[in-house]
Amino acid sequence: MSVRPQQNPMQLVSTDLLILLMKRTGDGRSISVRDLAEAADCHPSKIDHLRNGRRQTATQAEAEAIARRLGVDLMCLWEHTGRTVEAPAEPAHAAAVPA
């Protein structure tokens, strides 16, 4: 079994910018959450969480795909995390609560 190298996530620069770019992509048309998720090969809830600020990060591959589909350069919408930009702590996912 091969182990994938760990990647630092990309951090979204602005939720407002993401929303604006989704309303008018590089080709002048809008794109839905579902269509953008399909282009980024992720679940639509991830795009929705990025749009409403519940999530601020994506993998590099997802960030690149989102920027490409929206028609902007990667660094217009995302910034690298790691040595100079600390990745924000993502909220824990809902867990089952014992009865």
Score class of each variant (00 low, 15 high):
86 E>A: 09
73 D>N: 10
53 G>L: 06
59 T>K: 06
96 A>P: 15
47 I>Q: 03
57 T>R: 00
66 I>R: 00
62 E>V: 09
96 A>M: 15
42 C>L: 10
91 P>E: 09
21 L>P: 06
77 L>I: 05
5 P>Q: 08
73 D>A: 13
62 E>W: 07
64 E>V: 11
94 A>N: 14
81 T>Q: 01
30 S>K: 15
1 M>R: 14
37 A>E: 01
59 T>F: 06
64 E>N: 12
7 Q>R: 05
56 Q>L: 15
4 R>E: 11
86 E>M: 06
55 R>C: 09
60 Q>C: 05
90 E>M: 09
17 L>E: 07
61 A>F: 10
46 K>V: 14
19 I>T: 13
79 E>A: 00
4 R>S: 11
82 G>T: 00
33 V>W: 06
19 I>A: 14
45 S>C: 15
80 H>E: 00
67 A>E: 01
55 R>P: 06
37 A>G: 05
53 G>W: 07
60 Q>Y: 01
88 P>L: 04
59 T>E: 11
18 L>E: 04
23 K>H: 15
23 K>E: 13
54 R>W: 14
55 R>S: 13
49 H>V: 09
99 A>E: 12
22 M>V: 06
62 E>G: 07
7 Q>G: 03
83 R>D: 07
4 R>L: 13
97 V>W: 04
25 T>K: 14
56 Q>F: 11
49 H>G: 10
40 A>P: 01
89 A>R: 11
14 S>L: 10
60 Q>R: 05
16 D>E: 14
17 L>Y: 05
12 L>N: 02
58 A>Y: 01
15 T>M: 10
41 D>P: 05
4 R>M: 11
11 Q>H: 03
48 D>T: 15
34 R>K: 13
71 G>S: 04
8 N>S: 09
2 S>P: 13
65 A>T: 03
2 S>A: 14
91 P>N: 09
21 L>M: 15
97 V>G: 08
51 R>G: 10
88 P>T: 03
21 L>A: 08
69 R>W: 04
54 R>K: 11
39 A>S: 08
36 L>W: 05
28 G>C: 04
85 V>F: 00
29 R>V: 06
8 N>G: 02
36 L>S: 03
77 L>E: 02
38 E>G: 07
75 M>S: 03
67 A>D: 03
87 A>L: 02
26 G>Q: 04
75 M>A: 03
92 A>K: 14
15 T>H: 12
78 W>S: 00
98 P>A: 10
88 P>C: 02
34 R>E: 14
23 K>L: 14
90 E>N: 08
92 A>S: 13
33 V>H: 09
88 P>W: 02
35 D>Q: 09
63 A>T: 04
83 R>P: 06
31 I>H: 01
14 S>K: 07
22 M>K: 11
6 Q>I: 05
44 P>A: 06
42 C>W: 06
57 T>F: 00
32 S>L: 09
94 A>E: 12
90 E>A: 10
18 L>F: 08
29 R>M: 09
5 P>N: 06
40 A>M: 03
9 P>D: 01
12 L>C: 05
15 T>Q: 12
1 M>G: 14
66 I>L: 02
92 A>I: 11
18 L>M: 12
35 D>T: 09
12 L>T: 01
31 I>N: 01
12 L>A: 03
35 D>L: 07
97 V>K: 07
75 M>G: 00
76 C>Q: 15
32 S>V: 10
23 K>P: 06
42 C>I: 12
53 G>P: 04
37 A>N: 02
91 P>T: 10
4 R>P: 04
